[in-house]
Design a binder for these strands. Structure first.
Ligand code: MN
Ligand code: MN
Ligand code: ZN
Ligand code: ZN
Lengths: 143, 143
DNA sequence: ATTGAAATTGATAAATCGTCTCAAAAAGAA
DNA sequence: TTCTTTTTGAGACGATTTATCAATTTCAAT
């Protein structure tokens, strides 16, 4: 029994609900993805080339996007590339960033999350993901 | 005396400190930029084509990146494009973005802003700026 | 005002990243 | 097995931004 049974089941459920098929490539990519905290399509392409030299980059992109739709991954634009975060690896969180020393504090605030939902609903949107980053000075750098 | 004298002076100081030159193109682009809250290089290219049909797109990019280095602008990846925000602009707002059609809705929410301050204070931070982007589907794209 | 080194420009090639196309292959229900 | 639908891989393609480079402009020193 795999350590990641919950995620494997979640994906299979998503596949079933959407008339999608369980392929060797999807299983291979899922297996590799669940071992990561976050990865780019390109990095996964090179990593999996050892196991299957014919696995196409387009398939990696398609499958990582599928994971996003199934709720297993979350895409984040980071610099010029897209990072696919493993949602199961760490819960959702946002960031406080010190612009002076670069210190990063992770936080989670349910009230903010709820207000975000309200704002979205008021504008007819359904939120899939979000990004909240607070930039400023940490206590040490303020003095 | 221009309404944006402070920013014009700030740019000239930056130019002087870095052996950069004050060109007609830089003045033209600065003038247009300071009237905007945020703009893409492409949008500015089309906008300025009326005043100078030979102004190159590369010059727009180079100049907007220069404004970032001079502290007048802030680059923000927004979907596939880069938005250059005018940091001197007073009216802060955040964004709802439809991941399907690209629609962008601007919003302000004082309660979220207040909670952000609380989170920051609890962690010893003083917020200078922040970025909040909500990604999802607009009413039309949700079907 | 003239000169000349250094910076800048515009046109366009190139790089980057991700999606689209489509014929062949695979999945899976019957 | 048969048959329909989905998926795949390879590369073309599109969008955005940066690099290249010869010609032009700036500006400080004559
Ligand atoms: Mn959050
Ligand atoms: Mn805000
Ligand atoms: Zn700090
Ligand atoms: Zn939409």
């Amino acid at each position: 029994m795999s350590k990641h049974q919950k995620e494997i089941t979640a994906l299979k459920e998503h596949l079933g609900k959407h008339q999608l098929k369980c392929t060797r490539q999807r299983e291979l990519i899922l297996d590799a993805f669940l071992k990561q905290e976050h990865i780019t399509a390109e990095a996964m392409y090179h990593q999996l080339a050892k196991k299957d030299p014919h696995l196409g980059l387009a398939t990696i992109y398609r499958t990582l996007n599928l994971f996003c739709e199934a709720g297993l991954a979350q895409a984040r634009h980071f610099g010029t590339q897209t990072q696919y975060d493993n949602v199961s690896h760490k819960g959702h969180h946002d960031h406080l960033i010190c612009t002076d020393c670069g210190k990063i504090v992770e936080f989670e605030n349910c009230d903010i999350e709820r207000l975000q939902e309200e704002v979205a609903a008021r504008n007819g949107f359904t939120i899939k993901t979000h990004r909240l980053e607070l930039y400023g000075l940490c206590s040490r750098c303020r003095h």
